[in-house]
Each structure stands twice: as C-alpha cells, then as structure tokens.
Design a binder for these strands. Structure first.
Lengths: 217, 217
DNA sequence: CGCCTCCTGCCTATATTTTAACAATCATTC
DNA sequence: GAATGATTGTTAAAATATAGGCAGGAGGCG
C-alpha cells in the first residue's frame, strides 16, 4: 500500500465528498455514474475526479463509467469506513455532548464508548449508552479498553496536557475541537476543527462582499 | 480595497491562526515579534508568513520585526473582527445549542440573537440570553432585525430549503453545519463545517499509520 | 457489422501555492 | 559613527495542484 503514502491531503479531503454523493445516488436508485455527473454534483472538475480516483486504481470502465455501489465501496475501503472504531470524548461540555449525540456518523461504524470530565455534576450521566466518567480514571480506562480515536473537547488551557496523556496511553488519532494547535509526535495524527478560524474566515468574506456591494452602488 | 479581491483562500485561512498566536504573545507580555518566531509557533514557514502579511501591506519594520499589538489589530481589521456581528442559529438541536453556548468566539463581538426550531419542546427556552423561537417566525424576525450571519444546524434534509429562505430574507453569510453542500447564488458566502468529512479524513490517516506501523515491525 | 457517442485513464499544460534567496533597512555595539 | 547581526519586503524558483486534451475501449443502433 505504498501508493497511499504520497497521496496529497487535498485528495483525501475530497474523498468523503465523493462518498457522500455516491450514497445519495444509491438512495435514488441510480447504479451507474460518470465523472461528468459527479462533477456536476460536487462542483469539482471531471478531470480532477478521475485523477483523484486513479490515485487508488482504475475503478471505472472506459467508455462506460463507474458502478456507483462498487465505487462507493472502494472509497469506503480507502478511507477505512469498512471497519469499526471506538471513540472516547474528553471534555463533556457543550461540544463534547453534542458530538456524543451527533448521529451524522451513521455512515460508518463509530462508537462513542465513554466521555470524561472533571465536573462532578456531569460524572455518572449517560449519553446514548456512553457514560461520562471521571477524568482521573482516563488512564486506567485506556489501559483496559482499546480505543481508536480520542476527541478533545476540553478548554484550550488543558488541551495540550490532555493530548499528551492520551498519547502516553497509546492513542494515535486525535480529533481536536479545542482552539489550540497541539504539539504532537510524528506518529500521532491530529485533525483540527477550529470553529473560531472557520467563523473568522466567514467574517472576512462577509465583509468583503459588503465592501464590493457598496462599491457597485 | 481592490487588493482584497485576489487574496487566495489559503492566506485567509491562515490569518486567524496568526491572530490567535499574536493574542497569546500579548498575554505573555511580549510586544515585539518576528516572522521567524511566528514560524516556530504556527508551523508555517517564515517566508510564507511574511508573504501572507505583505498581501495587505507592510506591517513590519525591516531589520526589526513586527509590533505584536499593532499586527494583531491590523489582522483584526482585515478579518473584520473590529466590528459587531449578530447571529441567528437555525436548528436548536445538539449542535445548535452547543454553538449558542460556545464561548470561544469571545475574541470578537459575535452575539447570538436567537435560535429557531420546529420542536415545540424547545421553543421558548433560552440559551445565554438568546431565545429559541418557532421556525415559522423566522421570516418575520429577519424582516425586523438586521442579522449578519446565519448558522444552519438543521438536519440535512431541510438545510437547502432553510438556506434559500435565509437568502430570500437578505442573509449573505451562512455557517453550515449540515452535512450537505448548499447550492447558493454567487453573492452568498457559505462556510462549511462538515464534521463527517473531518472525521473520515482522520480515519484515513489513522489507518495509514497503522499500516505503516505493521509494515515496520 | 460498422459507425457513432460516450467515457476512462493517462499524459501534458496551466495555474496556484510554497519555498528560497537577497537587497534594503534598522537597532545595537564597540 | 562604522561594523554587525537580525529581519523585512520582494522577486525568482520550485513544488504542487488543477485543468485540458486525446488515444483507446465500451455500448448502442441502424
């Protein structure tokens, strides 16, 4: 699987989108598609779609197109959506609870096994079969349970410290919602969801649009 | 302000990060910095940082560096963080409520004015001074109040429809949390936060790491 | 069967983004 | 007040990402 090593992040970011649209086609009962059709749906150029897919092998048939279900399965395999993943959430505040309640992951087999928090009022509560446990028990828990992905939803002040603790306990994949960049060793992958930065970008474009509108009036 | 028109999105995405780190420097009482220092903090190359900033003008002093507070204010101005923004949230489920409760926006003046939902159990509740109102009252509300940014936290099945309604009522900036791409006119800016796609990317890298680890053993 | 249309996979060209290099400039030191 | 070291702004080069173009294969149709 050496070919995976050199795939650009931009390609990986697009794959979930293809996957989603292929799912929609399946739901509509359409079982054949083409890069042109996917282009219309996703907004990416047909050429780019073909090239993206060809990074992983020729899933299509020349002169014909792609089999929707087959292509979807192949992308699932590439992303690893054909496996099960156990998740814990550290920090059971607003965001942590929202993630635990989020049903949008249904497309793959992600299971939130437990949440952790310091707040005694939260400890003992359950969210969709997942218990909120005391943060002090985190390390013991990770020793016993094999966890794939940890979600950090703590305040930023403790996020680095929590991340280091997680890594010490063998975690290699972190989904970080704290507005801070984690300094992590090479063999840990961090996926950031920085809501501020997203909102600030939006703010920039909002203002730019307003400036243009005023100019044209 | 024509120069803003051609700034690449990649640059805009980095500005909030500079802004955040400059805030941290201020908090530490440091009032002078350099592209090299910012590079160490942010992980971007010093060259790139200088080039990014010079898109908007020379904020530094040759041979000396940048004044932390001044640079931070300039970036704030570029992003528009020196203004106030009124926000509504459509969909007061888990994510909607979490956003309403989110305090991470404190760096700028964002005010969540109201939430909207169809669920009678939620209508009438308040979250941090913002009331959850009936979705049926959305259009009336938007006629009376001048809202800058709308957040979509509805199920994906209605997100497109909600977005169109918002645009009809004069909204031009949408922060979309529904796992669907909105088809919008040119003069509307949509910033997507697609949690699935983010998690799927993480899953890909998690698996790739595991493959590499197994190979090296 | 032959022709036409459509579409992939691949190769090439263009555009964009990032990195590198360097002259100009400033504060500091001796 | 001249030399030094640090650092910017800017230009050029390299790397990367995207788009375009085309040969060849597949299916459909008369």
């Amino acid at each position: 699987m050496d070919k995976h090593d050199r795939i650009s992040p931009a390609v990986i970011r697009r794959l979930p989108k293809y996957y989603r649209y292929l799912g929609e086609l399946t739901k509509m009962g359409i079982n054949k598609t083409s890069s042109r059709e996917l282009s219309e749906m996703t907004g990416f150029s047909a050429s780019q779609i073909r090239q993206d897919l060809n990074n992983f092998g020729g899933f299509g048939q020349q002169g014909f197109g792609y089999d929707v279900e087959n292509l979807r399965n192949e992308i699932a395999k590439i992303l690893g959506l054909d496996n099960k993943y156990k998740i814990i959430i550290v920090g059971a505040g607003n965001i942590g609870q929202a993630i635990a309640n989020y049903t949008g992951f249904y497309e793959a087999d992600y299971e939130v096994v437990a949440l952790f928090d310091k707040n005694p009022k939260l400890i003992g509560m359950s969210i969709r079969n997942a218990m909120i446990m005391d943060s002090d028990d985190l390390e013991d828990f990770l020793e016993k349970e094999k966890i794939d992905i940890a979600v950090i939803c703590t305040p930023k002040s403790v996020s680095q410290q929590v991340a280091e603790q997680l890594v010490r306990c063998g975690i290699h994949a972190i989904w970080n919602f704290a507005p801070k960049d984690l300094k992590m060793p090479e063999n840990v992958h961090v996926e950031n969801v920085h809501l501020n930065e997203s909102l600030f970008s939006l703010t920039y474009y909002y203002n730019r649009m307003n400036r243009e509108k005023n100019k044209n009036e």
